[in-house]
Simulated scan of single mutants.
Amino acid sequence: MKKIKLSMNASPWAGREIRCPFSLIDAVFDFGQPEYYKDTLNELVTFMFKPKIYHKKSPDHTFIFFAVLHSLLRAAYVIHCKSGQYKIKAPKKGSIKLCYGSLNRKEFQNPLIVFKNVYACKSLEGLNLALFEMVSYALNPFSDYPTWDLITPYIHLCKILDASWQIHQRRIETN
């Protein structure tokens, strides 16, 4: 089987190249909290349908946000391709349902299922394009409404963020 070599493209925002997808997930959540990513993503989607520019005074924040999520999508894809090699530690007993986020019970128990399901529906290129389109529409005051479905990729991105947060919190099991 061909070995998967996919750059995480982390050097623009992390200041260094990161090769391990789990190290990249750690770097993503060292860079910002999950609430920041989800709030920013929600605002981007809201601004897609407004004739206003998202973060008009500092659009560089939006570009950095795009770069971080672009790297996270690549890390999730690498983990998905090698999913048989990894096992995530079980959640602590008595985890409250608020921790689930956008995940259902089964996905919360095994966050790797999220990556499998997302990449079964959308390709890495498709998700990257959707993320690019979201940012593009949010930063363009003269654009028309999106002509294709960007809400489904938005839901996928939310699930990837929640699954990645669970992986970051619980770590992988060592044999």
Rank of each mutant, 00 (worst) to 15 (best):
F49L: 10
K89A: 10
R74V: 05
A90H: 07
I53F: 03
V45P: 01
A76D: 04
I151R: 11
Y100N: 08
A90S: 15
Y37F: 12
P153H: 01
I18D: 02
G94R: 07
S143I: 11
A90R: 05
L73N: 12
R74A: 13
I96Q: 13
H55Y: 15
S123Y: 11
S102W: 07
V135Y: 01
Y145S: 12
S83T: 05
A27E: 02
A130M: 10
P146A: 08
E125G: 11
A130V: 05
R19E: 15
D26I: 02
L127F: 08
D30Y: 07
P51S: 11
C20V: 11
P51E: 14
I155L: 11
F132K: 15
L73K: 07
D60F: 07
D149A: 01
K87Q: 08
R16L: 11
C99W: 14
C20W: 12
Q109W: 07
S136C: 08
P51Q: 14
P153D: 03
G101L: 04
L129V: 13
C121N: 15
I113K: 11
F31R: 15
I151M: 13
I96R: 15
G126S: 08
Y77W: 15
Y145I: 12
K89R: 15
F49K: 10
E17D: 14
L44C: 08
E17F: 12
L139G: 04
F108A: 02
L157Y: 00
T152N: 14
A76C: 11
S123R: 04
I25E: 02
V114F: 03
H70I: 00
H80W: 13
Y119G: 03
L24S: 02
Y154I: 05
I151W: 09
P111M: 03
G32M: 10
A120V: 01
P21Q: 02
Q85F: 07
D60E: 14
F66Y: 14
K87G: 05
T46F: 09
C158W: 05
Y86L: 03
K50N: 08
I79E: 07
L41F: 01
A130C: 14
P91D: 06
P21E: 01
G94Q: 03
P51R: 15
M134N: 10
C99S: 09
T62E: 02
K93W: 08
L157W: 04
A27H: 03
C121K: 15
N104E: 03
F47A: 07
A14E: 09
K106V: 04
S23K: 12
H61T: 08
K52C: 09
Y86N: 00
L73E: 05
S123K: 06
E17P: 06
F108T: 00
I79Q: 09
I113C: 04
L73H: 09
